[in-house]
């Protein structure tokens, strides 16, 4: 703390003026409730919190339920009076689930299977989206139509011929089955990513691009210096969505990569066969030490599910900070 110094007469006067006004008056109440230029009013803040918490509760509810169930022992599960708080937190559920899922290996594989195509998609869709957003060329509308048609066509009817093509090209049973389509803009839900990028590029004021080109920026320079910095938000969104969707994709992963030769196991595929693998694990461990008599129950399943969601939550919690950072970058490019 700094040393207290003597106040000058002027400062005293200011303080006194402040004190005089400190009583509750109409102006102040109004300002408090409705807010001023710098601050939100109480009513607005209160309403915002109320709505956010109410709807947030809807989203949280199943997760909370899942988490609370995951800590329950078998007795708690069977006890009808216990709905939320377990009588004691049984952390061994998680330990068993971790072992049954072979979690750390599955996590590594999942990170790879979801991460590599995601990074590729972020780049490729960004480039393709720029082509669609910025340039006019013959057949552009047709291309966008095909893009959306590919998005609309039910996957159920496309999956068989697509598998035939992939296996003819020798892509199946390896990571290539995800990497090559992602490189060519055909990854999981790639059309929506291209459309997201397109929409973000469209927000760039045309005058900015023109000014840059007058100053001698070529197409590539204006892509790297204008388009990419102003699409940071799009990149984060695409990264998150793509990662989550690749992470959660069990059917295609099973079909293309982990199906025949089980070199890879993702968290989601191991979760989908959680029951059987858990039984196998429980049997093997009970053979070793007779103490654990675990059989599959809801608590273990929930623990497994929580474990499968957790990395995504952590990823998002880290990434959402960059959301804010993108403002500053965009501020420079604004007019």
């Amino acid at each position: 703390m700094t040393k207290k110094r003597k106040l000058t007469a002027e400062e005293k006067e200011i303080l006194a003026r402040g004190k005089r006004k400190s009583g509750i008056n109409k102006e102040k109440v109004r300002k408090f409730l409705l807010g001023s230029r710098e601050k939100y009013g109480f009513i607005k803040t209160f309403l915002a919190y109320a709505v956010l918490i109410a709807i947030g509760f809807v989203f949280m509810y199943p997760i909370l339920k899942m988490i609370s169930t995951s800590f329950m022992s078998l007795d708690d599960l069977l006890n009808g009076s216990i709905t939320w708080l377990p009588s004691k937190f049984q952390t061994s559920n998680y330990k068993d689930a971790l072992n049954a899922m072979d979690y750390w290996k599955a996590l590594k594989d999942s990170l790879m299977i979801a991460g590599i195509p995601t990074l590729i998609q972020v780049v490729v869709c960004g480039v393709v989206g720029y082509g669609f957003a910025r340039f006019n060329f013959f057949g552009k509308k047709l291309c966008i139509g095909i893009l959306i048609l590919a998005f609309v066509l039910p996957q159920q009817i496309l999956i068989t011929p697509t598998y035939v093509v992939y296996s003819q090209l020798g892509l199946t049973n390896s990571l290539l089955a995800y990497i090559v389509p992602a490189l060519l803009g055909q990854g999981i839900k790639a059309p929506i990513f291209i459309l997201i990028y397109m929409s973000f590029y469209r927000q760039i004021p045309q005058s900015l691009v023109e000014a840059a080109s007058i100053d001698g920026a070529g197409y590539f320079k204006s892509f790297f210096k204008i388009a990419i910095p102003s699409a940071t938000g799009a990149m984060i969104v695409v990264l998150l969505f793509s990662f989550v969707w690749y992470w959660n994709e069990s059917y295609l992963t099973n079909l293309y990569i982990t199906g025949r030769r089980s070199e890879y196991t993702t968290i989601i595929t191991s979760l989908s066969k959680f029951d059987s693998s858990f039984d196998a694990y429980a049997n093997s461990s009970s053979a070793g030490s007779s103490s654990s008599s675990a059989s599959i129950n809801e608590a273990y399943r929930m623990a497994g599910t929580v474990l499968s969601v957790l990395p995504l939550m952590i990823l998002y919690f880290i990434m959402q900070r960059y959301f804010v950072e993108s403002i500053d970058n965009a501020g420079i490019t604004g007019e």
Binding site: F59, S250, I268, S308
Partner: peptide
């Protein structure tokens, strides 16, 4: 508010 993205597409 990111939860729905994870939940709707996933095993949850």
């Amino acid at each position: 508010y990111f939860l729905p993205v994870i939940v709707v597409s996933g095993p949850v």
